[in-house]
Design a protein around this nucleic acid. Structure first.
Lengths: 189, 189
DNA sequence: CCCATGTGAGACAGTGATGTCTCATCCGGG
DNA sequence: CCCGGATGAGACATCACTGTCTCACATGGG
């Protein structure tokens, strides 16, 4: 019947519009999410058991997108700086979703977080560590902090864009240049 | 009677513990806030008409703290880079509160934000602009973006500290060095 | 000592969101 | 043509939080 394929398509569409809306208004209601997706609350509830399930699906989606971005950026190849540039360029389209998930994780204390994040953190940190070992990056900023800073700048950038304080086209450049400018070892004056 | 002074002291104590708690768990209940402050929900409600009033009081507190930090940092004196160092050092103690307020502002769409923020934004941006005009800072990163990035790094840093991924003592250094490393014009190679 | 003030404990209704349900409708395939 | 599956609309109970209230207590000053 292929109804599975159709449901998957719808599911993706719902996830996409939910990400869009929740980026702008993190406290959006299930009803608002449904309306934003052009479906009824009942149908939304048929596809996602509840708000938790929706958020967890968004989380899985975001983790997958980050993983794909890390793959696409080929973080093992070339200079670490160029790899960071490719990585930010690849992740930037999902900055809004990331910003939502980033704060959502801060919203609750304790509450074990999805293990996928740990792995992503490790892959990103490994990139910064490689840059340190190759002599490109400063040693006084830890890979863990640079990773955290990358998330923070992505989130700040996404919000600045959504509030019109920053041009979407400049987002990648602004993030990369600020991050790398700090992470790159400065010429020994 | 002096009961005004006493109430003010209690109020500050409540604000402080509320800031502490809300930094870790932004969705904390009025009951949790009260318990964290060691008072009953009734008393909390007597001091702050409601959750909105509490958040707005925290916002005013945060704005005042930032304003004081800007004053204390004497952002008009010396090199812009040193001024940024002083500013971050002065603001860092309030990073947790700032992180809470920063996301709280993103939580709702529309909802005019407190005018105090605009003024603070302007003062911070002016500092970065001064650095650009004096030739210290790069011109391709706009003052508005640098301002936003400062907030983002403060928030990221505060969370990283509260989750044990970053030592509190390193916070200022990590933020300043990453931010300035990017904002400082690099030596013409 | 007595009283006033501030407080804690708890009851209470109101509110908004959630999750579940039913039912009418629509649409595509047999 | 008819029927099964999916949908939208809406009713409904539930739940957590809020904001308001009352009452008992205890603490400190007159």
């Amino acid at each position: 019947m292929g109804y599975c394929r159709l449901m998957a398509v719808d599911r993706d569409h719902v996830l996409r519009s939910a990400a869009d809306l929740l980026t702008r208004k993190a406290t959006a209601t299930m009803d608002e999410v449904a309306r934003a997706a052009g479906i009824s609350r009942a149908t939304l509830h048929r596809q996602f058991a509840g708000r938790d399930a929706l958020v967890r699906a968004l989380e899985a989606h975001g983790i997958a997108a980050c993983g794909a971005a890390l793959d696409a950026a080929r973080t093992e190849e070339g200079t670490a700086a160029d790899a960071v540039r490719r990585l930010v360029a690849a992740i930037e389209p999902h900055a809004g979703l990331l910003a939502f998930l980033y704060t959502e994780n801060q919203l609750f204390e304790g509450e074990e977080q999805n293990a996928g994040w740990t792995e992503l953190d490790e892959r990103v940190a490994a990139l910064f560590r490689r840059g340190q070992e190759s002599g490109e990056f400063r040693l006084d900023l830890t890979p863990a902090w640079l990773t955290e800073a990358l998330y923070g700048l992505l989130a700040s950038g996404a919000w600045a864009v959504s509030e019109g304080r920053l041009a979407r086209n400049d987002l990648t450049h602004m993030i990369v240049e600020l991050l790398l400018g700090g992470a790159l070892r400065r010429e020994t004056s």
